[in-house]
Amino acid sequence: MSIQHFRVALIPFFAAFCLPVFAHPETLVKVKDAEDQLGARVGYIELDLNSGKILESFRPEERFPMMSTFKVLLCGAVLSRVDAGQEQLGRRIHYSQNDLVEYSPVTEKHLTDGMTVRELCSAAITMSDNTAANLLLTTIGGPKELTAFLHNMGDHVTRLDRWEPELNEAIPNDERDTTMPAAMATTLRKLLTGELLTLASRQQLIDWMEADKVAGPLLRSALPAGWFIADKSGAGERGSRGIIAALGPDGKPSRIVVIYTTGSQATMDERNRQIAEIGASLIKHW
């Protein structure tokens, strides 16, 4: 067993022997301040990774656009098919120029040779490549099948209805392509620590998230040296922004954090800054 596999296998073990965790309302004060600064709703939840206990939450059962955070769930569904012998990570998928959609920095470079399922998941999570996500959605049967996968996990809230990039439209009061912070946090925890996926697939999923290259201005910008984070960000229309993450000190994750916002007129930089400040408060009061 590799060191990384050992780390993920012992996530519940280490967490069980940690000192009790206590909620700190100071972080919620910052979440509410972010709402004021952005002029928009902000949803927040913080779960203990081992027990699933909610440590703090704000608007945990209000719907927010998922945006690209759905790509972690998508690759979880792909990995479940791999575990069941219905898919192979090494299978190569070929596609054409007509398949390319807006923001496809990886797939646009491989029109000639195609990409493997493993490479597509890596591109979808680490670079948020939209064509990679659409190609992977095709392998599982489309958005409705991802929703069905989530329902089978016990998540009857999260739903995907459309493809990239239309799913980022974020129309107010439109339930399409949305989740709730509580539902997303619980589902992410199941994917990373539950028995739904094999140990190898859980490790692969967290490795992809740990290698995320496009979430630097968010929670990662607030992390002290030595902290662990595996995350996936999302951005959408109407001032929408979000991030889902597993993080913790001492090089291992111990909490799940989900943050979503929508309806702001603020710039992307300002949305990023507010999420980073929430992260800084979380870490300060850990």
Rank of each mutant, 00 (worst) to 15 (best):
103 Y>K: 03
59 R>E: 03
27 T>D: 08
97 Q>F: 10
216 G>K: 11
253 P>K: 04
121 C>G: 05
37 Q>M: 06
277 E>K: 07
60 P>R: 12
145 E>M: 09
169 E>Y: 05
80 S>Y: 10
253 P>A: 04
215 A>N: 15
173 N>S: 09
219 L>Q: 06
246 A>P: 01
277 E>I: 15
125 I>D: 01
197 L>N: 03
131 T>H: 12
102 E>A: 11
146 L>Q: 03
205 L>A: 05
85 G>V: 08
172 P>A: 11
237 E>K: 14
148 A>T: 05
136 L>E: 01
49 L>K: 11
240 S>F: 03
176 R>S: 07
103 Y>W: 11
233 S>Q: 01
50 N>F: 09
36 D>G: 15
259 I>R: 00
98 N>I: 05
98 N>L: 12
122 S>I: 09
254 S>F: 15
221 S>W: 07
51 S>F: 15
78 V>T: 09
127 M>T: 12
39 G>H: 06
139 T>Y: 09
102 E>H: 05
169 E>P: 08
124 A>P: 01
177 D>F: 00
122 S>A: 10
155 D>C: 02
193 T>V: 09
95 Y>P: 07
113 D>Q: 04
43 G>F: 00
135 L>A: 11
200 A>V: 14
146 L>F: 05
91 R>M: 05
124 A>D: 01
107 T>F: 02
217 P>G: 10
153 M>H: 06
136 L>M: 07
29 V>E: 14
66 M>C: 10
159 R>K: 15
101 V>C: 12
227 W>K: 00
108 E>I: 15
242 G>P: 00
262 T>A: 06
203 Q>D: 04
163 W>F: 05
25 P>S: 12
192 L>I: 15
98 N>F: 09
264 S>F: 04
46 E>A: 08
73 L>N: 09
67 M>A: 15
235 A>P: 02
249 P>G: 08
255 R>T: 06
58 F>A: 11
238 R>P: 08
38 L>S: 09
121 C>F: 01
232 K>V: 00
80 S>Q: 15
237 E>A: 12
187 T>W: 14
67 M>W: 01
45 I>Y: 14
147 T>V: 04
136 L>H: 01
64 F>E: 00
78 V>N: 02
242 G>Q: 02
95 Y>H: 11
143 P>Q: 14
90 G>T: 05
96 S>N: 07
143 P>A: 10
122 S>V: 09
58 F>V: 15
29 V>I: 06
112 T>Y: 15
273 R>K: 07
244 I>L: 12
128 S>D: 01
32 K>C: 07
190 K>M: 04
249 P>Y: 09
134 N>I: 05
188 L>F: 05
261 T>L: 11
215 A>D: 02
269 D>V: 10
120 L>K: 00
169 E>V: 04
196 L>S: 10
37 Q>S: 06
48 D>H: 07
76 G>N: 01
103 Y>L: 07
211 A>W: 15
260 Y>K: 00
230 A>R: 02
150 L>E: 02
54 I>F: 11
278 I>H: 01
102 E>T: 07
173 N>A: 06
45 I>S: 12
149 F>W: 12
166 E>I: 14
253 P>H: 06
111 L>H: 14
211 A>E: 15
264 S>R: 08
268 M>W: 11
141 G>P: 09
259 I>F: 11
100 L>Y: 09
223 L>A: 10
120 L>N: 02
238 R>L: 13
133 A>I: 01
256 I>A: 08
165 P>V: 10
280 A>D: 15
124 A>F: 00
63 R>E: 04
75 C>V: 06
270 E>Y: 03
106 V>M: 14
259 I>M: 11
204 Q>A: 04
245 A>V: 10
55 L>Q: 13
260 Y>W: 02
96 S>I: 13
65 P>N: 15
241 R>D: 02
247 L>K: 00
32 K>Q: 14
125 I>E: 00
185 A>P: 00
116 T>V: 09
213 K>I: 06
49 L>V: 15
151 H>A: 05
109 K>V: 11
213 K>H: 04
243 I>C: 14
226 G>K: 04
54 I>P: 14
189 R>G: 12
234 G>F: 01
199 L>H: 08
136 L>D: 00
155 D>L: 00
62 E>R: 05
113 D>W: 03
115 M>P: 02
45 I>P: 00
257 V>L: 10
54 I>L: 12
275 I>E: 01
176 R>L: 07
41 R>T: 14
137 L>S: 12
266 A>H: 05
120 L>Y: 02
241 R>K: 10
119 E>W: 02
123 A>N: 06
224 P>I: 03
161 D>R: 03
88 Q>F: 05
266 A>K: 03
32 K>N: 07
88 Q>I: 12
111 L>R: 11
167 L>T: 07
56 E>P: 00
44 Y>T: 02
38 L>N: 05
274 Q>H: 09
80 S>W: 14
57 S>D: 05
273 R>T: 07
203 Q>W: 03
216 G>I: 08
203 Q>S: 04
250 D>S: 04
285 H>S: 08
125 I>R: 01
176 R>P: 08
160 L>Q: 06
185 A>W: 00
212 D>R: 12
184 M>E: 01
242 G>N: 15
68 S>M: 00
243 I>K: 01
284 K>P: 06
76 G>V: 08
235 A>W: 02
255 R>Q: 12
93 I>A: 14
277 E>L: 13
80 S>G: 12
80 S>I: 15
263 G>Y: 07
79 L>V: 11
135 L>W: 03
128 S>T: 02
224 P>H: 12
97 Q>K: 13
151 H>C: 05
168 N>W: 02
204 Q>I: 08
213 K>S: 03
182 A>D: 07
189 R>M: 12
165 P>M: 12
285 H>T: 10
196 L>F: 12
33 D>E: 08
206 I>Q: 04
55 L>S: 13
76 G>M: 05
273 R>Q: 11
59 R>T: 02
79 L>G: 02
269 D>T: 13
160 L>I: 14
179 T>Q: 00
179 T>R: 00
56 E>V: 07
76 G>E: 00
137 L>K: 01
109 K>A: 11
112 T>A: 12
233 S>V: 02
130 N>H: 01
213 K>N: 07
122 S>D: 10
91 R>C: 14
166 E>Y: 13
138 T>Q: 14
162 R>D: 09
255 R>G: 03
163 W>L: 08
177 D>W: 00
59 R>M: 14
263 G>T: 10
118 R>K: 13
265 Q>A: 10
102 E>G: 07
104 S>Y: 04
67 M>E: 15
90 G>V: 06
115 M>R: 05
264 S>K: 05
80 S>P: 02
141 G>T: 10
225 A>K: 14
94 H>D: 05
64 F>Y: 13
173 N>H: 10
135 L>D: 01
263 G>L: 07
174 D>T: 07
113 D>C: 08
207 D>C: 08
63 R>S: 06
269 D>N: 15
152 N>I: 07
228 F>H: 11
176 R>T: 05
81 R>V: 09
261 T>W: 06
240 S>W: 00
223 L>F: 04
155 D>V: 01
57 S>A: 11
262 T>W: 07
212 D>Y: 03
143 P>L: 10
275 I>W: 03
222 A>R: 06
154 G>S: 08
38 L>Q: 07
50 N>W: 09
31 V>Y: 00
115 M>S: 04
230 A>E: 00
115 M>W: 02
77 A>I: 08
229 I>T: 03
121 C>W: 00
201 S>Q: 15
191 L>C: 13
142 G>Y: 03
176 R>H: 06
139 T>I: 10
186 T>M: 13
